[in-house]
Each structure stands twice: as structure tokens, then as C-alpha cells.
Amino acid sequence: MLEIKNLHATVGGKEILKGINLTVNAGEVHAIMGPNGSGKSTLSYVISGKDGYEVTEGQILYNGIDLTEMEPEIRAAEGVFLAFQYPVEIPGVPNVTFLKEAVNAVRRHRGEDELDAMQFVKMIKAKTEELGIAKDMLKRAVNVGFSGGEKKRNEILQMAVLNPKLAVLDETDSGLDIDALKIVSDGVNQLRSDERAILVITHYQRLLDHIVPDFVHVLAHGKIQRSGGKELAFELEEKGYAEYGVAAE
């Protein structure tokens, strides 16, 4: 589903990604682990298409199509989803309105009929119940006044309603206490499926206790340094990133 080939990317003229190779198949969960400054967030932004992140070499093939020249909204409509490390607050816009706008924008792109208010409410109600999300979160302005846990749960709700094929979770565990971490992880696990690929980007191993990956990759200095199974995460937790030339923090 996702095939990254020799990916180089710069931010503000500085090269951050220096030749990434990575293949993720449908049904798989991959974890990218790495220290601060290794290029983890850059990778997630390059996949989702944020302005200012320039691909200078290589390709990001998504079901065989190169994403690199595609607008972020087209990528989203094609099924790429990024759960943000820091979800953005949008005052004055009710969460439910935002979700409806997003769902219908994606449906339009796919040539599907837009959902009317009734259909949408029915769908969103079912999703919130499935994920155990309080209904008042829908009425409030997008992420405004949300706790860290609520913001991340809102990301998972968006993921659930947009139904992506490839989901990238950028430091989803940051700022979460252990209870919130469990709720969010349960949400992600519910969304695991044979048709969907998930890329979990994290600094710490603890998230991977809850979202157990099929593969773990170590990212440092803009390159994948090593790949392995889930046991690699435990090794990193024990030894740190020192052997990849990164000083302990």
C-alpha cells in the first residue's frame, strides 16, 4: 500500500530526511521509533503533504501512485490520514460541523453522494458510541478547551469517520496519562483491519504495549537504521538510541 523509495526531504532548505526506504502493506501496523530530531514528524508531514516540507528526491508511492505532488486534501480524499501530535484548535466552528464538512468533501472527491444532516448525525452517533466518546465533544468548537486526551480521542474519531486506508499516527501518546493512552489505543485497535495500513510514530515504547506493531523501524539521522519485529521496541527501551549515534537526553 505504501512504498517509500529513497526519500529525501528538506525543511527551510535543511535536509532532514536523507534516503528513507519503507514498505507497508495493507493489514500491517508499523512503528517508527526514533529520538527527537530524527525526522519522525517530518516523515509524517511529507506523507500528508504539509507546505514547507519539500521532497528533493525519491518517491512516496501509495497504491502505486506518487503522492509527492498531490495537494493534502486530495491525499486525504484518497485515503491518507494523519493523526496530529498537536491537534489544532478552531474556535467558533462546532466539531460536528467540521466533521460533516470533512466527510462530505471526501465523499465529493470519491464521487459519492454527500450525507445530509440526518444521515450524518446517525453515522456520527454510531461512531461516537463505538469509540466511547462523549456526545458533548461534538457540540463544542473543534479542540477548543479539550484536554490532551480529548484532543487525541477527537483525532481517532476523525479517523473513524473518514475511514482512511493509510493512517499515520504522529506521537499519539504525547501528553497522555495512562488512562487516556489506553482509551486512545483501544480506539486505534478497533480500527485495525486487513484493508488498512497503520504507521505509528513514537519516541517511546509504552504506546506499543497497547498498539502492538507487526514491524518496528528505528529512524535516526534521517534514515531508517534498523528494522525488526516488535521485540526491537523492547531493546530500544532498554538500551536507548545510543548505538545509533544519538546521545541520551
Binding site: G49, P72, E73, F98
Partner: peptide, 18 residues
């Protein structure tokens, strides 16, 4: 806010609408 703009676009909302 460019971050907010990207957030909306990453959810499929076209730029002009966002």
C-alpha cells in the same frame, strides 16, 4: 494560521473552503 489550514486540508477540506 498555516497550521490550522493544513489541519483542515489534511481532513480533505479543499484549500479555498478551508
Amino acid at each position: 494560521d498555516e497550521n490550522a489550514l493544513f489541519y483542515l486540508r489534511s481532513r480533505g477540506v479543499p484549500e479555498a473552503l478551508a
